[in-house]
């Protein structure tokens, strides 16, 4: 038994569980990665909880989630519903919509930074044809986060689509037909039959999207670096900066533990709340 378990148990213990415990200890020290760490107790947590900057990075992360989640869910659902009908070239279309999922976040961020270039990017050029003056996108504090959200939704909509499509295909078509016979229109069938039956897939999408949303980093790092002027500084970017730019590894570990606790709390609340709306037939 051990022979089969050890190849995975050793790396998980050394590179996940061990560091997880170590992070808790580091979060109770002041440490710049170089000089020996000094014990400061809960000072890092106290500092974080009173620093308005902490509220800012959580607020920006929340803004990201609030913008991103409805966009990928509604977009993914619309595509999945369309692909679940008798459509020619379904496999090809599904393949194209899924394509951005296999691309790295860095490439997505770079390509969108280029598409959304304020001076000569293709998006503003096209808007210009219609006489609309495009915004400054990532160079404008007000538009930096919407730019990140747009790029992220483009990348992830195909992932959501595939999960919802699998959920739709598991629904018994007779139930939808029965509603049609009873005279229910398209919207009525969607809201009263399809969506309740799709709720397990929706639940999965929401749980995963929130876990990933709180950890948003790669695309922020490459698109704005948290700027301009900190307008898109998210939690993980802050952890990275605290560690490698400001030499506050202790504070960074405290912030990462706060983030973990927030993710854990949000996930537990969702799992406990699922009975109210998730329908496991």
């Amino acid at each position: 038994m051990l022979v089969f378990l050890l190849p995975s148990a050793i790396p998980l213990a050394l590179f996940v569980l061990g560091p997880m415990v170590a992070a808790a200890w580091i979060s109770l020290t002041e440490w710049n990665l170089l000089a020996p760490a000094t014990w400061v107790g809960l000072d890092n947590y106290a500092k974080l909880l009173t620093d308005p900057g902490t509220a800012d990075v959580f607020l920006h992360t929340a803004m990201y989630i609030v913008g991103y989640l409805p966009l990928v869910y509604v977009g993914g659902l619309a595509i999945a519903l369309a692909l679940n009908t008798a459509l020619r070239g379904r496999t090809l279309l599904r393949g194209v919509y899924f394509l951005p999922v296999i691309t790295s976040w860095i490439v997505v961020a770079l390509v969108w930074r280029w598409l959304l270039n304020p001076s000569n990017g293709v998006v503003n050029t096209v808007l210009g044809f219609f006489g609309i003056e495009g915004p400054g996108w990532w160079s404008d504090p007000a538009w930096a986060m919407p730019s990140i959200i747009l790029a992220s939704a483009w990348k992830d909509v195909g992932f959501v689509m595939v999960i919802l499509l699998a959920g739709l295909q598991a629904i018994d078509p007779e139930l939808v037909d029965a509603a049609r016979v009873d005279g229910a229109g398209w919207w009525r069938r969607l809201f009263s039959v399809t969506l309740p039956l799709l709720s397990p897939a929706t639940f999965f999408v929401v749980v995963i999207s929130l876990i990933n949303g709180f950890q948003v980093f790669d695309q922020v790092y490459a698109m704005t670096g948290g700027g301009p002027g900190g307008a898109s500084q998210v939690v993980v970017q802050q952890i990275y900066d605290l560690t490698f730019r400001y030499g506050s590894a202790g504070e960074a570990s405290a912030l990462s533990w706060l983030l973990f606790l927030v993710i854990l709390a949000v996930t537990v609340v969702q799992i406990r709340g699922q009975r109210r709306w998730v329908n496991y037939g």
């Binding site: 590179f15 061990g18 997880m20 950890q215 980093f217 560690t243 973990f260």
Partner: peptide
């Protein structure tokens, strides 16, 4: 469920 970010420093 453990985010990589928590593990980076240690």
């Amino acid at each position: 469920m453990i985010p990589l970010q928590v593990l980076v420093v240690p």
